[in-house]
Amino acid sequence: MISATQKKNSSLKGKSILTLSELSSEQIQFILDKAEQMKTNKEDGTHLLQGKIVGMIFDKPSTRTRVSFEAGTLQLGGHALYLNGQDLQLGRGETIADTAKVLSSYVDAIMIRTFSHQTVEELSLHASIPIINGLTDLYHPCQALADLLTIKEQKGQLKGVKLVYVGDGNNVANSLMLGAASMGITMEIVTPPGYEPQPSITKFAQLLAAKSGGRVMLHHDPFEAVKGADVIYTDVWTSMGQEQENEKRLMDFVNYQVNTTLLKEASQDYIFLHCLPAHRGEEVTSEVIDGEHSVVFQQAENRLHVQKALLAEILSS
């Protein structure tokens, strides 16, 4: 049960969520606790967003982000508006600033899934309502919150867990690194040379880890990194917008596939995570993602619960 003191100290009311670096470890913990509570009691908070409207801007296609935010808003008694970026006047040259000001007078919050993180920052700068980052080229904070919730459910704790991410140092890796660092997780990021996460984000995550008792380390040898790992995570090698790099990436990542040979080095009770969609046979084998250690569908379900927790705390009276 969440105490009144916890709630007061972790208030998110009216707050935009652009990256996890803007949230304290207490706020992250509060979101996870709230999500667990809502997951256990599906009737909890069914009227929290009554009369509230969430505008959802999509410049990138989505399954989990769209359905989880839309379903979550409806389950809390609110209404979600799907806004295709190309159907808005943004697609015809209207400025982000003008769009932010107009939408602020129509809806209570905006969730945006787009390419450039600068777009989200500019939207937040000019909006008078909360902005939630549903994904950009640099960050995917809502996914990382669902990842942390899944690890907590499976391992019973976050602090001290060893998490190994194998693959591209992309937006998912960036947000997961920030979240893990805040919560005292030991995270090792294994990439081919040249595919590491952005250095400034890594440095900030390492500063967070130093305060929480966690660690953030970069590696190029997956077999060395996964020794004793409690959690193994991977993502697609080629993200949306990188299709022209696909052939080169397939060659560069060929030794970074998560398969049963690699996982012999992990803890016996490891869990496997993937944010989906997955390309079976590339970054992960079917044997792993469909195997007994995989919790990818629990992880996907948890997108719904953390997003309901976020919406409830940001928008409820």
Rank of each mutant, 00 (worst) to 15 (best):
L315Y: 09
L135F: 12
L311E: 11
L149C: 12
I57E: 01
R66D: 12
D252C: 07
R113L: 07
S267R: 11
L218N: 07
E301I: 12
A144C: 13
T191E: 01
S175F: 11
Q298W: 02
I189N: 07
P199M: 01
Q257W: 00
A229W: 11
T136H: 02
K8N: 11
T260S: 15
K227C: 12
P193E: 08
I289V: 15
M1P: 08
A210R: 08
E313T: 13
A209N: 01
E224G: 07
Q143T: 11
E287F: 06
F272N: 03
Q118T: 14
D290Q: 05
V54T: 10
N84M: 09
M240E: 05
T19Q: 10
L263R: 04
W237K: 05
A146V: 14
S200N: 11
L123S: 02
Q143D: 09
S200F: 10
E196L: 03
P61A: 14
V172M: 12
D168H: 06
D147C: 14
K13P: 04
Q6H: 06
G45Q: 01
A229H: 12
I131M: 03
G291C: 03
D269R: 06
H293G: 08
E292N: 10
A97P: 00
C275W: 00
L12N: 10
S68C: 11
L88N: 07
L145I: 07
S286R: 08
A300I: 05
K52R: 15
S105C: 15
S124K: 09
K248V: 08
S316P: 01
D230A: 12
I2R: 10
D59P: 00
N255M: 07
S104P: 05
M38C: 04
E245I: 02
I189P: 02
T40S: 11
T5I: 14
Q89D: 01
L23I: 06
T191N: 13
Y233G: 09
L135Q: 11
A127S: 15
V288G: 04
G156P: 04
V107D: 10
I131G: 01
G169A: 13
P197F: 08
